[in-house]
Amino acid sequence: MTIMTLDQIINSLGLTVLTDLKDFKSLTPSYGYTSDLLSCVMSGAKNQGVWVTLQAHNNIVAVAALLELAAVIITEGAMPDETTVAKANEQGITLLSTEKASFYIAGKLWEMGLRDV
């Protein structure tokens, strides 16, 4: 599998970083996962993965922290509120945002070499 950094992902997909900046070049996500159902994510996503969802609800941070995900890409311009962003910073979770739909983002990540298994 192609190794890519979170920095490459952010730049090539034009994502907006909502949480504190980090050394994104040192982070290399190993999996991709798409779902809007928290129960599916809990059972299906693996650690150090990138989770694509249109959910901006504050529960996503808890799930991401529990699964030790590298980043959450929130699609379709959905905006988490301030407390959600603060909670993400506290837990060291990177929240990214895009106007594009989940289908497009997952399609592009797959094209870049990311897989979900």
């Binding site: 379709e76 739909a101 897989r115």
Partner: peptide
């Protein structure tokens, strides 16, 4: 397949994202 894999495969097969921003 999972959703991520399916998005990837279908996107590769030439399907566009058929969603418009709200």
């Amino acid at each position: 397949f999972g959703m991520f894999e399916l998005c990837g495969r279908l996107y590769q097969a030439g399907l566009a994202s058929l969603e418009q921003p709200v």
